[in-house]
Design a protein around this nucleic acid. Structure first.
Lengths: 236, 236
DNA sequence: CGCAAACTTGATGTTGCTCAAGCTAGGTGG
DNA sequence: CCACCTAGCTTGAGCAACATCAAGTTTGCG
């Protein structure tokens, strides 16, 4: 249950495989790699909590992370499930605006914020690259708002399944669902029970199969897309 | 009912008053001003529609704009009410991802996208400036998700009132509400009737006063903040 | 094998939606 | 200047979707 932090050199991370450095000059990548340290977290561990000092920026290299916000009485909304290639904590200004927890075992690149921000000004193309990434997140956030504000329970669950399927560019429409039903509920603005009931109904209608709790197979994508309501969009 | 487009020189917009150029070198501002044209829209006019070619980026100079997404059956979600200092269409990649309509008469700076993107690479500090603006939007979007997914009708309306009050850095907690009840409903993920009923109840409880339909006064900010539930945040 | 956490299923309750009717205010034309 | 007209707002009654409360069931781990 202990997080490891080691120097990057020791682990030989390939800069070409990191999302932040993609498309940058070799020298620019080198600058980034110089300020990175690799870090691992076990499933269930907290990376940082809402309100913490936002002194680091992270990129997920492997695994899945949930981000969430809490209300004083404990109501939770998961703002995103992030996997490899996503940045964490970039938007936070001084303090973290959400909590990040590992859903699976996670490997991270950690950048000290001060060094990272200096690089943004010095490395040509980096700010532009980050701007593109953030714009994509914003686009996804707007789709989420439509889902949370205007979709029915069935539409929400169907949209969620399609989103997950598109993200795992998996051939055969089989989705790995490492998050709990509770996570899904808090991601969709529903209760656990409603998520469970809706999945059962989709199964009964032969739209999906649920061989194990953590695996869902899409049997009839067309009808699922109809149920999902709006745009068949995917992102983040 | 006709939008006007004139050269910028003719109207002598002060670059220091534009949000995009704030903090940039004088020369950089000059580059931006060179590709800008000023444009006006009357209340109710559409700036661009979801699905349109995203060939321009706009900054709002004056007035208020609503952004929304529609579902095929007509359900609408307003993703934001934008006023002076906000950028429009920056995140859109090739096509507009939302519709923008003028709520009041609006003055805009219009940048051709191709020229704007070229400047992002050429003008030092611009990408960084845009990154900060986009990050703020993302932060606001996450607060909205919590509101849409987890707050009750009363909490939503109370949050909305506080948000509007904070945005109009108005002294006396009197809010100008240029948008219709229908706009507010589609912003909060509610129906017109629920918004109206909730406002009436807040009025009966002496938390607010509604001298005219487009004006709401906050009488008891403390209790309203209690009702609003989570964080007393404001942004965008 | 046993235990706890996660999930499913059922019965009941409440919030906010739908449908329907009346009201208000601002703008237009006589 | 006033009366009308319409778009927008308010209010009410009934209802549906989803939440809540409460058992059971499955799963995976020690």
């Amino acid at each position: 249950m202990f997080a490891q932090a080691v120097t990057n050199a020791a682990l030989k991370i390939d800069p070409a495989r990191l999302a932040v450095t993609r498309g940058l000059e070799r020298q620019a990548s080198g600058h980034l790699m110089a300020i990175t340290s690799l870090q691992k977290k076990n499933a269930g561990e907290t990376l940082f909590a809402e309100g913490d000092d936002a002194d680091s920026v992270y990129e997920i290299v492997q695994g899945m992370v949930r981000l969430y916000k809490l209300m004083p009485d404990g109501r939770r909304l998961i703002t995103g499930f992030l996997s490899a290639g996503n940045l964490l904590n970039l938007g936070s200004d001084r303090i973290c605006i959400y909590t990040a927890e590992a859903i699976t075992a996670v490997t991270l690149c950690r950048y000290k914020r001060s060094a990272f921000e200096r690089l943004i000004d010095e490395v040509p193309g980096l700010a532009r690259r980050l701007l593109v990434m953030t714009s994509h997140e914003l686009r996804a956030a707007q789709d989420r708002m439509l889902l949370l504000g205007r979709k029915s329970a069935t539409e929400k669950v169907a949209s969620f399944l399609l989103l997950m399927a598109d993200r795992q560019d998996s051939d055969g429409d089989a989705i790995e669902v490492p998050m709990t039903r509770s996570d899904i509920a808090d991601y969709l603005g529903l209760t656990i029970e409603t998520v469970s009931r809706t999945l059962t109904k989709l199964k009964q209608d032969d739209l999906i199969a649920i061989p194990t709790v953590t695996r869902i197979e899409i049997l009839d994508r067309d009808r699922l897309e109809d149920l999902a309501g709006g745009e068949g969009d995917a992102e983040i």
